[in-house]
Structure formats: C-alpha cells, structure tokens
C-alpha cells in the first residue's frame, strides 16, 4: 500500500475519493472532539491541582487536533456549524469509547480510557505519516509531537493506581467496562469505504492490523499491572467484523450511539441553539497559516 499513488488536492478528488477522505477525517475529528469534551468534565474535579492541570492540557491538545481535522473537512465546503454545531447527533462517527460518561470520582476511568485511546491514537497516526493525501500527511507530525506525553501520563498513573488493592479494583472495574468499547475504535464506518481508504493509501495500515497491534500492546501491559484481560482472545473472533461478537451494541463508527451521547450532544450544543446562532466564532489563526 505504501506505493499507492498520491491523491490530488481537495478540489480535484473524484466523488469516491472524497467520500473516503471525509470518512477517515470524521473518524479522527469526532474522536478527538468527543474524548476532549469528556476529559474537560474533570477540570476542577481531579484528585489534585496538579492532575487537574495535566488532564486539562490533554483535553486541550485533543480539541486542538479535532480543530485541525475539522479544518480539513472544511476544504470540501462545510463550515464549522455544519460539522459540529448543526450536524445531527445521529451522524457522528466517533468510537463509543469516547462518549461514555464518567461516574463521579471514578478517576480510574479517564486514566484507563486515555491509555486505551492514546495507544490507538499513536498507531493510527503512524499509519497516516505516509498517507497518499498530502493535506492529512502534512498535519500528522504536529499532532504526533503533542501526543507523546499523553500515553506516558496515563501509564504513570496506571502504575500508581494499581500499586494498591483499592486502586487495582477500580482500574479493573474500568477495564471491564471500557475494553469492549475501546475495540470500537477499530470498527469500520462502512466496510466498502474502509476498504477504499486502504486501497487509496489514505492510511497505510488496515483497521484489522491496527487493532492487532493495539491488542499486542495493551494486553501484555495491562496484564503486567496485575489486571485481567478476559478478551485477550478477541483478534480471531473479531476477524468476522462485528457480527455476534462481544462488542457493544453501539459502535459509534456506524453512527449508532448510546443514549449518553444524545445527552452530551444536547449539552454542548445548548448555547448555540439557545442563542439561535448560525455561525461559530473563530479566534485562532487558520491552521494553514500557523
């Protein structure tokens, strides 16, 4: 796939090519936006002032990345309101891992969630470094540079938390809840379009391969912390896509979501609707000029 031909710029893509690029970008942008939206819930609520600041940093990084990816979607015409504020909840494509609510005080959840998410993020960014689409390729490096410490942050916390019984119990509980949802990161939005994304060389690793690499990383690591990963056998059964597997009913990628997503969506679009807005204020520079 590395030898795939370079794609044209946004204005010269065929319909099929554009659809593939858009699908890929929505996967990326929606994930970053929604995971950050959830992380910000911990602002002023984290266990210490220091952990508060650190998670807020991570949330802002992810929001910044969402901004970069949505900006590439704007190449095709839609503006920020079309992409975020007025897009119906049922059209979002983020993995359902990102949308799940936190229980109050359940610090193990954001830490484990960010670990599971950031390992996947590293893998999928690596698969974009040689993307055939220059607009994506050009932005990967900047994002990778900011992702470095996210995983380290999560790992340091996991090591701390699993150092005592209560912490281990809490992390295990979070793992039992989150692991099936984390696998939806690699679920296809649409089989045919995902195949096209690979064929066009938009990414250089298929979802199945990324998922395998992800499992090869997270399973031994988590087991090494004394956690049990019952779904360690998942890759094989997963090969038949998402029929009859122990995945949650809502994959996100296929635009199916949990009820919690509807609530979250209503909350973050509330002001926009309440004030009857039709534009979204930009205060930062266009990413192409940064």
């Amino acid at each position: 796939m590395a030898s795939a031909e370079q794609l044209a710029g946004p204005d010269e893509l065929s319909e099929e090519e554009q659809e593939a690029v858009e699908t890929l970008l929505f996967r990326l942008a929606d994930d970053e936006f929604v995971v950050a939206e959830r992380y910000t819930e911990w602002q002023v609520r984290a266990p210490t002032l220091e952990s508060d600041l650190a998670l807020a940093n991570i949330a802002q990084d992810e929001l910044g990345h969402a901004r970069l990816w949505y900006d590439l979607l704007q190449d095709f015409g839609p503006d920020e309101p079309d992409l975020i504020w007025e897009r119906p909840a049922g059209e979002w494509r983020h993995s359902t891992l990102t949308e799940l609510p936190f229980d109050e005080g359940d610090w193990a959840d954001p830490i484990l969630r960010s670990y599971l998410y950031d390992v996947a993020e590293e893998i999928r960014l690596e698969a974009l470094v040689d993307s055939s689409y220059a607009r994506i390729r050009d932005r990967v490096g900047k994002i990778q540079g900011e992702e470095d410490y996210h995983r380290e942050h999560a790992e340091n916390w996991l090591e701390r938390l699993t150092d005592d019984d209560e912490g281990t119990r809490r992390v295990q509980q979070a793992l039992d809840k989150l692991l099936p949802y984390a696998l939806t990161i690699f679920a296809p939005a649409d089989e045919e379009i995902e195949a096209r994304i690979d064929e066009l060389g938009l990414r250089t690793m298929s979802l199945a391969d990324m998922r395998e690499e992800w499992l090869d990383t997270v399973v031994p690591y988590l087991e090494g912390l004394g956690l049990s990963v019952d779904e360690a056998e998942l890759p094989e059964q997963y090969d038949t896509h998402h029929e009859g597997l122990e995945l949650p009913d809502e994959l996100g990628r296929d635009q199916s979501h949990t009820d919690d997503w509807d609530d979250l969506y209503d909350e973050f679009t509330n002001t926009y609707r309440d004030l009857d807005r039709s534009e979204a204020t930009r205060i930062m520079k266009d990413p192409d000029e940064e």
Partner: peptide, 27 residues
C-alpha cells in the same frame, strides 16, 4: 467550568478550558 461545555464554538471552548486551567494554576 460548565461553560467549557456550553461554549458555542470550538475556539471558544478551547479558550474556556484554558482559562479554567489557568485559574487552577493560579490557585
């Protein structure tokens, strides 16, 4: 803090999150 979520644009959301973070830093 609740207005990080309520912010009606992506840039405003970022700015609000950064502001709340600054206040914690000041604390």
């Amino acid at each position: 803090r609740p207005f990080i979520r309520e912010a009606p644009s992506l840039d405003r959301k970022l700015a609000f999150s950064a502001k709340v973070q600054d206040e914690i830093g000041h604390g």
